[in-house]
Design a protein around this nucleic acid. Structure first.
Lengths: 191, 191
DNA sequence: CGCGACGTTGATTTGCCTCAACGATTGTGG
DNA sequence: CCACAATCGTTGAGGCAAATCAACGTCGCG
């Protein structure tokens, strides 16, 4: 549980009281590979912080194909923010790609923490600003680059993720088929 | 200038003192059509709030083609958040599509306001959370849908934007050529 | 051991781009 | 206010990027 305090304290120092408030409302869990912590049609009840392991967040189209919106590993937060705040049913899934350890905070608990530790507004503002910038880059890439460029860029930007993920998951993230990713990898290896 | 206070007060009430602090550091400007408020190679110096008018934010690829990352109109904020906080040169442009009225806050002034009005952390956290959810939907669309689906979705999600923007700008936003958008529109009109 | 997930290859099809050309608007400078 | 230029929307022919479908070998795991 220390992990989440360290994480927050990368942004701003916390007092002893604040640390206790947080720990009292954060719950640690172990998650098995392929286990889902959010499913389509359910409300996203937690903010989830990853201590160890790796998750994918994805939507499923009308043909039943999965499309990975994001990956998250050690030190990342993952949740369907829209569903979490609106309390409406999510259209997304969040699923463990590896056996994982996480810390979860429920909506009411997070709101309590926001009320009692204003600092957390600042911290989460900064966290989400950073995630926003990442997403924005991804959007720019996806409307301006070929699949090969996007793949090379993914390898450069997330080398540690790329080496632990199956290619089929990366293909889904890039918005291409596994077959075509295979072709891209062959072309790149020729050079 | 009342516009920006109203905007904030949609999220949380402000005291008279807070309103004065904000007004003292926000500057109103008029911007002509095609005028840029951010150019590639420069640091993004302001958070910009749009009172009236419309902007596009875009990147330019190595062939010189523009790719629209987002539009922003009345009541929206627009800035290159990454450049703004890191003070590094931006790779993006922000340009007025119509004659516009805006309110700008410089980085140091915004930081001052954050320090003196903790509420603003909360307000901007919520603002950016909402923008994050929007962007995430866009990413999902772009990796899972055809150009036609994305266009129809754009019309539904932003009808007021769609009717005031030239199709060439919408095509750039969707990541397709104007010619192909024209074909899509023809196909849709047949039905 | 046997099954399911994974990565790869090849043949064919489709979505979207490129380039060129054309009228219709829009906007701007003289 | 007009005339000309630039932007815009559209059409069509041809080409390329990526999807689809089918098949096959490998590997890890239950």
């Amino acid at each position: 549980m220390q992990a989440i305090l360290d994480h927050f304290q990368n942004y701003l120092p916390l007092t002893e009281t604040e640390r206790e408030l947080i720990l009292a409302r954060a719950k640690q869990r172990n998650i098995k590979r392929r286990q889902m912590i959010l499913q389509e049609g359910f409300v996203c009840k937690h903010y989830t912080f990853i201590i160890k392991g790796c998750f994918k967040m994805y939507g499923v189209d009308d043909k039943g194909v999965e499309h990975n919106i994001q990956f998250a590993a050690e030190g990342d937060w993952i949740s369907d923010i829209g569903s979490f705040h609106s309390q409406k049913n999510s259209r997304l899934f969040i699923e463990a790609l590896e056996p994982s350890e996480i810390i979860q905070i429920e909506q009411q608990d997070l709101y309590f923490l926001y009320r009692n530790i204003p600092k957390l507004d600042r911290i989460f503002k900064v966290i989400i600003e950073n995630k926003y910038v990442e997403l924005q880059n991804r959007v720019l890439q996806s409307i301006s680059s070929t699949a090969q460029q996007r793949y090379v860029n993914f390898l450069e930007q997330y080398p540690r993720l790329a080496s632990r993920l199956p290619n089929v998951q990366i293909a889904s993230y890039l918005g291409i088929t596994p077959e075509f990713l295979s072709k891209i990898r062959k072309d790149l290896s020729v050079k």
